[in-house]
Design a protein around this nucleic acid. Structure first.
Length: 554
DNA sequence: AAGACCAGCAACCGCCTCGGG
DNA sequence: GCCCGAGGCGGTTGCTGGTCT
């Protein structure tokens, strides 16, 4: 903010301006100074009270409009645009000053959910408030939410928005309403990793619900800047295998996300077509923002609506996702990640120039890549979809982050008492943010204990014989795992399909293995999916040749 | 106490739309 | 139909004051 030091300074500046044919240009702000028809350069920078008085006087006499005439008629060395802005934002009567009230805040959130960054339209619904004010408020709010790891849109807002969209979709005549599908309240608390996962989860694309262009662009724009979350925040946790700690939760997360999406789309394939044809193409053609592929993918993640979509690192400039060196697959040929991003084209065969290209696919990887495109996951998802289409039961995606032991736990914004905070958050968004920032040290993540303390060592899986499997029948054959000369498990043993070696082909063994691999959460919550009747083809692991050759086990 | 950092906000810039000539 | 100017809009910049270290 340009603040004038004192009234006397103001007067002096104005006097200087009047006296001198070349007034002080304010020295602030860049760009080429506009000139008034060959006259002296126009002044920039803060307005003085004297200038304000001149402008107010002019408007009183001549009314608003014809702003370029202000300079001619008053001697103000300000361009018309500057005058208009000053009048609109500061001088016009009935302007409300001071902080936004709680009601206003809620209204802004609601309006933004409907309109996106249409500040002027939003201002029309907030008497006395200017678009600039709202914009500044929102931008500040975004930052605070991101720091606190909070959803940008409280669930109640989204639900309300959703309902209103259905009832009065033409209310604001913007045609940019967030998809109702995306506004399911219970989906709003997906932890960040869900969206992370979706970034690099082409398989999820077919189930992506429809999301309007504004929703994608605005929300992504906001959310990409989020520094909240990250798998990579944890990979350095002592005792955690670097890559593996990431991969498996992502797998479970992927399942969650897809199941959720399948719920929405299993009965409406036409909707899918519309979503892909309309949303992406519309966005890609009409906008240079080039985020549509993510947008389409992300629409499968309700976390998007929370503004909790986040890359694990801030993304600056064009949307660009780069792996930290830690996950540079070039440096670690055994990394599972190397095989997680086989550049299989997304269903729509759409490639965003910023985000991905067939030749630069690794740069698109989520930092918590899952073995997508490996075949196994694809199959798993496919089967999950089939199963889900027959059941209308949605697993709790929230709890996947609240159970102890999920390696991606710290990525979530959900904590056991989140519901309580949620109430307060919805009622007093600003107070909540400040209070939470104060108590939390700005981040849920930072207060979350290391995973290694609570998570079961899923990589001990290979040390289990099937007989040790809790659900293993007594008559089933025990397959002894292989160990190397040092007594370490042979990498081959780490493959779930190792459990199928020998004559045993009991699918339950494999399912249990998957459940173990996915951790407690998925084991408990996706039991209907993984536990009952799904037979995963173990040969699919062959598509991930080095999947289990994690360096820690060499 | 001083410097660093950050949040808030006013103002600027560039692009777009619209209307008049 | 084209050109041009005015106004509107959204994104960005950069200054100020408060807080933290």
């Amino acid at each position: 903010m340009y603040r004038v030091k004192s009234e006397s300074d103001c007067e002096m500046m104005l006097q200087d301006q009047m006296d001198s044919p070349v007034p002080d240009d304010g020295s602030s702000g860049g760009g080429s100074p506009q000139r008034g028809g060959g006259g002296p350069p126009l002044k920039k920078g803060p307005w003085t009270s004297a200038e304000d008085a001149i402008l107010v006087d002019y408007v009183k006499k001549h009314g608003e409009g014809n702003w370029n005439a202000v300079q001619k008629n008053t001697g103000l060395f300000r361009c018309g645009k500057s005058c208009r802005l000053r009048w609109a934002n500061h001088l016009r009567p009935n302007l409300k000053k001071g902080a936004f009230t709680t009601d206003e805040e809620r209204l802004i959130i609601q309006l933004h959910a409907k309109m996106g960054n249409k500040w002027a339209r939003m201002a029309a619904h907030l008497p006395g408030r200017t678009d600039n004010e709202i914009k500044n408020y929102w931008n500040t709010r975004i930052k605070r939410c991101q720091r606190a790891g909070l959803p940008i849109y409280p669930a109640s807002i989204c639900n309300q928005s959703s309902n209103e969209d259905q009832q009065v979709s033409g209310d604001f005549n913007c045609g940019e309403n967030i998809s109702t599908d995306l506004l399911n309240g219970n989906s709003l608390y997906l932890p960040d990793f869900t969206s992370d996962n979706f970034i690099a989860n082409p398989e999820a694309l077919p189930y992506a619900p429809q999301l309007s262009a504004v929703s994608i662009s605005n929300l992504l724009g906001q959310s990409f800047a989020s520094r909240n979350c990250s798998f990579m925040d944890q990979v350095d946790q002592p005792g955690m295998p670097k890559q593996s700690g990431c991969v498996l939760p992502a797998l479970s997360d992927t399942i969650d996300g897809v199941l959720s999406s399948v719920d929405q789309f299993s009965n409406d394939s036409e909707k899918l077509k519309q979503a892909l044809d309309f949303d992406y193409l519309n966005e890609a053609n009409a906008s240079s923002k080039s985020i549509a592929p993510f947008g389409v993918a992300l629409t499968g993640s309700h976390a998007l609506l929370n503004g909790n979509f986040s890359a694990s690192r801030p993304i600056n400039g064009p949307l660009k996702m780069e792996l930290p060196s830690l996950q540079d697959t070039e440096s670690d040929p055994n990394s599972w990640l190397k095989y997680t991003v086989v550049p299989a084209m997304q269903p729509t065969e759409l490639v965003d120039p910023y985000l991905q290209s067939p030749t630069a696919t690794p740069s698109v990887k989520s930092e918590c890549a899952s073995p997508r495109n490996s075949g196994l996951l694809e199959e798993l998802l496919h089967q999950a979809q089939a199963l889900r289409s027959g059941k209308n039961q949605q697993p709790s995606v929230r709890s996947s982050s609240s159970s102890a032991g999920t390696p991606c736990e710290t990525a979530t914004v959900v904590s056991p008492d989140f519901d309580l905070r949620q109430e307060y958050w919805e009622e007093h968004p600003s107070s909540f943010l400040s209070e939470y920032a104060r108590f939390s040290g700005n981040s849920f993540t930072e207060s979350t204990p290391p995973i290694s303390a609570t998570s079961p060592d899923i990589f001990q899986l290979s040390k289990f014989s099937p007989a040790q499997s809790p659900s293993m029948g007594s008559g089933e054959q025990v397959v002894e795992p292989k160990y190397d000369s040092a007594g370490s498990p042979h990498p081959e043993n780490l493959r779930p399909d190792a459990l199928f070696s020998g004559n045993t082909a009991d699918p339950s063994i494999f399912n249990n293995a998957i459940a173990m691999l996915l951790g407690n959460d998925i084991n408990a919550e996706c039991k209907p999916v993984l536990g009952d009747g799904i037979v995963l083809d173990p040969s699919l692991w062959n598509n991930m040749p080095h999947a289990c050759q994690i360096s820690e086990f060499k």
